[in-house]
Design a protein around this nucleic acid. Structure first.
Length: 500
RNA sequence: GGCCCCAUAGUCCAGUGGUUAGGACGCGGGCCUUUCAAGCCUGAGGCACGGGUUCAAUUCCCGUUGGGGCUACCA
């Protein structure tokens, strides 16, 4: 089956939609599984809205997701001459005809029919709106015309099998004699997709279900062109929480792939999550939901794609719910478990951007750095957490979370005196380790009569600026004696400035 | 409006003509702990409705309702 050829054909008119990303992923998975070819095509023929910036965003997004293409990017605009030629061919064979009715006239006919109780009126033939002789007169005057496809209406329903939605049979009378070429001679989408897919010899058209209703027209076009009809597989749509189609304008950044990269999501996590939207790898009682790219390629199949739309739940006004909670959970899983060697290439840019990267992390401090990452990532959710929650572990410049200071330092005023005392004891330890720090702290707690818990939490906040994190003593090991001592000594100042 | 598609917890997915209808996320409770957006245990929560077919329907058929898509000289 090395002849499988799939494509992803977005129109570069803005951001890279997560729904598009899933369509791209499924097409890519199919091609990879079958040793086929994955083609990237940019449908840039909407000159008003297509931009280079958008093209770049899509290309970057695809690369980020690891969806490499074998051919392309093909620019639809460059194939326009072919589309026009194909229209000419259809005209020549009689499968299409010139139509001199104006948009206003056909629109009026539609309205009139509707008013007369025929809501499903279609443009069904050359003379259905303007008499042929009148059209001939206009032609003689050199009036503008469009090219319409002549829908075959006497050969029964248009049939095709959708690999997801099953057998389809559409009454051709539900189809307009749709326009192929505009008045200015430029091709319309319906013609262009077919021509481009033909040009690329696409064997499996995998795309959103929003194209299902237009597929009969395309099937007719393939047939009129004497070309083989590809296999179709339409994917259920991904809707916003409210049930409507997701758009960045209405639903914000969670709709855009770029956002996920910028918010510290790992591409493998994104791919994993998105793969599970509308498809299931379930087999022999499989309940696992974390899959590597290789596993996805191995298990993917069009047969297990379901037919109902999925909903993306998120709340753009709630920071915790910036995207679907399950997407976040899957990403957390990846952040916590991806082998460091794989994680680092994604983490390094984040640390660099935050001014936290040190070349020693790759040299003298390598072991410490890696051990520290392992320690702190245990409860991280995104790559960005390394740069904020993890900041105090990698740098001496870090902020104190006001709530943590309030809860763990200010509530126990005696800490202002005790923490520096603890610093002295820690400084004097013969051996520095989580255990010895703990001993020292518990001894101080006992002697001073302050609860060990208060001291422990005070230590955590004084050393990391946070209220949560790894165990307070192991944390001290990661941060190092020198820094721990210095930060404990600085605690009174932190308390004073926060209390003031 | 017309045509087409869809319907298992709040969400994403499994599943079956007879099941205690399963998993994940989220949510509640408990345990652990110095903390928790960590870990472990545990709980609540679902087959949209109405007709059929059948000994038996969540499952098959029809309808209703609900949701979605398409319906351009946009892509």
């Amino acid at each position: 089956m090395s002849s499988s050829r799939t494509r992803f054909a977005p129109s570069p008119t803005g951001y890279f939609h997560v729904g598009g990303a899933r369509t791209a992923l499924f097409s890519w998975l199919y091609a990879r599984q079958h040793g086929g070819t994955f083609v990237l095509r940019l449908e840039d023929t909407d000159r008003e809205r297509s931009t280079q910036a958008s093209i770049d965003i899509i290309l970057e997004g695809m690369s980020w997701l690891g969806l490499d293409w074998d051919e392309g990017p093909i620019y639809q605009s460059q194939n326009l001459p072919d589309h026009v030629a194909k229209a000419a061919q259809l005209l020549a064979t009689g499968a299409a005809y010139r139509c001199y009715a104006t948009p206003a006239e056909s629109g009026a006919a539609r309205e009139a029919a509707k008013a007369a109780g025929n809501p499903s009126w279609k443009y069904t033939g050359p003379d259905c709106v303007i008499a042929l002789d009148e059209q001939a007169r206009r032609a003689a005057q050199g009036a503008p015309s469009v090219v319409r496809f002549r829908v075959p209406r006497s050969t029964g329903p248009v049939q095709f099998r959708d690999l997801v939605y099953g057998d389809q049979a559409i009454d051709p009378n539900e189809l307009d004699d749709f326009v192929l070429l505009r008045t200015d001679g430029s091709p319309l989408y319906m013609l262009s997709v077919v021509c481009d897919d033909l040009l690329s010899q696409i064997s499996h058209v995998i795309r959103g279900q929003d194209h299902l209703s237009n597929t009969p027209k395309q099937v007719l076009l393939y047939q009129a062109l004497g070309a083989p009809v590809p296999q179709f597989a339409h994917l259920p749509l991904i809707m916003a929480a409210g049930g409507e189609k997701m758009s960045k304008r209405k639903h914000g950044d969670a709709v855009s792939v770029t956002t996920y990269r910028d918010r510290g999501v790992l591409p493998a996590a994104m791919v994993n999550f998105i793969a599970l939207l509308g498809w299931s790898p379930a087999s022999e009682g499989e309940t696992r939901e974390i899959f590597t790219r290789a596993e996805l390629i191995e298990r993917f199949n069009l047969e297990r794609i379901n037919r109902s739309n999925a909903k993306f739940t998120f709340d753009q006004h709630d920071a915790r719910k910036w995207t679907d909670p399950k997407a976040q959970a899957i990403n957390a899983e990846y952040v916590r478990t991806t082998p460091l060697d794989e994680l680092l290439p994604h983490l390094r840019p984040v640390l660099l951007a935050a001014g936290l990267w040190q070349d020693e992390f790759d040299g003298a401090q390598r072991d410490w750095f890696r051990a520290t990452l392992e320690l702190i990532r245990e409860r991280f959710w995104t790559l960005l957490d390394f740069a904020d929650q993890g900041r105090a572990y990698l740098s001496d410049e870090f902020p104190y979370d006001p709530k943590a200071v309030q809860k763990n330092l200010l509530k126990e005023p005696r800490l202002a005196a005790l923490l520096p005392q603890l610093a002295d004891r820690v400084a004097g330890l013969t051996a520095y380790s989580a255990d010895t720090v703990e001993e020292a702290l518990r001894a101080l707690a006992e002697e001073s009569g302050v609860g060990a818990g208060a001291l422990i939490n005070g230590l955590r906040t004084a050393v990391t600026g946070q209220a949560v994190g790894p165990g307070a003593f192991v944390l001290c090991e990661a941060v190092g004696r020198e820094r721990v001592v210095a930060r404990l000594r600085g605690a009174p100042a932190v308390m004073a400035s926060a209390g003031a």
